[in-house]
Amino acid sequence: MAGIKRTADGDDMDIVGMPQKKFYRSRAHCNPLSHNDSFVYPLRPNAMDWSTHYPNIENPKVEFLDVGCGFGGLTIALATLFPENLTLAMEIRPKVTEYVRLRIEALRKDSLETTKAYQNVSVLRTNAMRYLPHYFEKGQIKKMFFCFPDPQFKQRNHRRRIVNTHLLTEYAYLIAEGGILYTITDVEDLHNWHVAKCDAHPCFERITDAAELEADPCVKAMTEETEEGKKVARSGGKKYIAVYRRLKNATIAANTSLF
C-alpha cells in the first residue's frame, strides 16, 4: 500500500501496536505428532466459545481455515477479500501465533474508526493434525488452505505431512459440498505428493480449468501474500499449486461405497 512505511521484514510501521517479526522468530516447523505442549480444546464443536475471537460478530461461524498460517499473510488478505466470511488462522508455534494475534489486534484498532475491518479474522494456537474435529461441524468449512507446509523430506516422516489419506477424509468431513481445498508449495516432490493423495481420494476432484483458477482471488492471495510465497519469489523459486473441489455426497455415493 502506498504511503505505508515497512521494516525490512515487511511489518507496517505506521500502524500503532504492529508487532515486528524479528521478536517472534521461531523454528520453521515442529513435529506435530510428538509435540508435548498441552492444548486446551473443546470436547465438541458446540462447546467452543468463538466470541473472544470475533467479539464484534454476532453468532460467529468460521468458514475459512488457514492451516499452519505462519505470520498470517494469507489470513490478513482473506479478511479484506471476503469481509462477509470468518477466517481462522491455525498455528502450532506459540511465538508465531502471538505475532499473528497482535498483528490482527493492531489492524483492528487501526481501522476501528473507519472501515472496522479485520473483525472477521482471528488466530488459534492448536495442533490441526489432532484437534480439527473438536472445533468444527460437518460441512462447516467452505475453504481450507495449506500454504507451504513442512515438506517432511525423509520418507519415515511422510506420515507427518499435513495432507495425507487419513487427514483428507477428515477434511472431507469438515468441508462443505462444493468447498475448496487449496495447496501451494515450492517443493516439487511435496506437490506431487499432494496431487497423488488428493487425486486418489474419492471425495475430491482437482480444478484444472486455468480460467477458473485465474479468476479465483484465493489462488493469487496464497501465491503472493504469504511470507513464504514472497520469499520464494525473491529467490526466483517456483511455486506449485493444486486446488481441489469437495464433491457432492451424491456423486461420491454413486462412485464408491463410502455413503
Rank of each mutant, 00 (worst) to 15 (best):
T115H: 14
V96L: 05
Q119I: 00
A106H: 09
K95Q: 15
V123N: 01
V96T: 14
R108T: 02
E98D: 11
S111E: 14
V96C: 00
Q119L: 08
E105R: 12
T97Y: 15
R93V: 09
D110Q: 10
I92R: 05
T114W: 13
L88R: 04
R108I: 10
E98C: 02
Y118H: 14
R108P: 01
S111M: 14
D110S: 13
A106N: 05
T115I: 09
R101E: 14
S122L: 03
L88T: 11
Y118I: 05
Q119K: 04
A117W: 02
L107Q: 05
A89N: 01
N120Q: 14
E105S: 11
R108A: 06
T97M: 01
V96Q: 11
E91Q: 10
T114Y: 13
V96M: 08
I104P: 09
R108F: 09
A117S: 15
A117V: 05
I104T: 08
L107C: 04
L88S: 06
K109I: 11
E105G: 00
T114C: 09
M90G: 07
T114R: 15
S111W: 09
E105P: 00
A89G: 15
R101F: 11
S111D: 07
T115N: 07
T115M: 06
V100S: 09
E98T: 08
A117C: 00
K116I: 01
D110R: 02
L107P: 04
D110K: 06
A89R: 01
E91Y: 09
E98M: 03
T114K: 15
M90H: 04
R101H: 13
N120Y: 08
A89P: 05
Y118T: 03
L86E: 03
I104Q: 07
Y118S: 06
L102P: 01
L112E: 15
Y99K: 04
R101I: 02
K116C: 13
L124T: 02
K116M: 10
V96R: 12
M90V: 15
K95G: 01
E113L: 15
L86P: 03
K95D: 11
L112R: 10
T114F: 13
S122I: 07
T87L: 08
L107T: 01
V123W: 04
R103V: 03
V121N: 04
E105C: 10
A117T: 08
R108W: 05
D110L: 00
A89Q: 03
T97V: 02
E105A: 13
E105L: 11
R108V: 12
Q119Y: 09
V100K: 09
